[in-house]
Amino acid sequence: MPDAMLELEGLEVRYGVVAAVRALDLRIERGELVGLIGPNGAGKSSTLLAIMGVVPVARGEVRLRGVSITGRAPEAIARAGISLVPEGRHIFAGLTVEENLRLGRAARRDANGVEADLRRVYGLFPAIAGSLSRQGSALSGGQQQQLAIARALLARPDVLLLDEPSLGLAPTVVESVFAALEEVRAQGVTILLVEQRAQVTVSTADRTYVLANGELRLSLTPADANDTARLAAAYLS
């Protein structure tokens, strides 16, 4: 059996009496790109926030490389090797691009290889390399998304969590973001991608899970990308 990089076992997330995620089991192998799709309110973002320690885990367990990280603080989880690109990017608009990237290094476990990693993200996102002294607020939406991903990569994570990276972006920019994600996966980073764009996610990811009402409803492979009837049924189930 291949190495499990990230495992969720019976994960439950609650907001008061409302269960956002129920009994979710998920296993992601090292170097995989796994998609998580579903309608609004399905529990996709809550799953990522629970993995990251931002919202508490009501029940179940989150394991990274076989070690439980349940209940740890977000900064401890980041330092353990998980980076989150949050929904809405959350770049620091008042800081420069260079300062945003420096913040991405806060979770690094060692200072070696920073320059090489910087060259790598500049290669992935050339627009970022040319905007280092600009304020984050001066970037376009697509550039801000690239900056958010670049910032997360500078932590040199084992697992990259992305929450709707295509939200609000033009189709051409979405294509470039997905192309960058494929390159990141090729570099050995495990990716859990939450998306609304079902078709492109299913075709890009090794496996895609459909979440609805906080429960896992369906598992899809790239071969299912053009089966729109199955996708629609999964969303409406």
């Binding site: 900064e75 949050p86 959350h90 913040l103 806060a106 979770a107 910032r151």
Partner: peptide, 8 residues
Amino acid sequence: QTARVLGV
């Protein structure tokens, strides 16, 4: 919150 998620 974002700062903590980044490892601060």
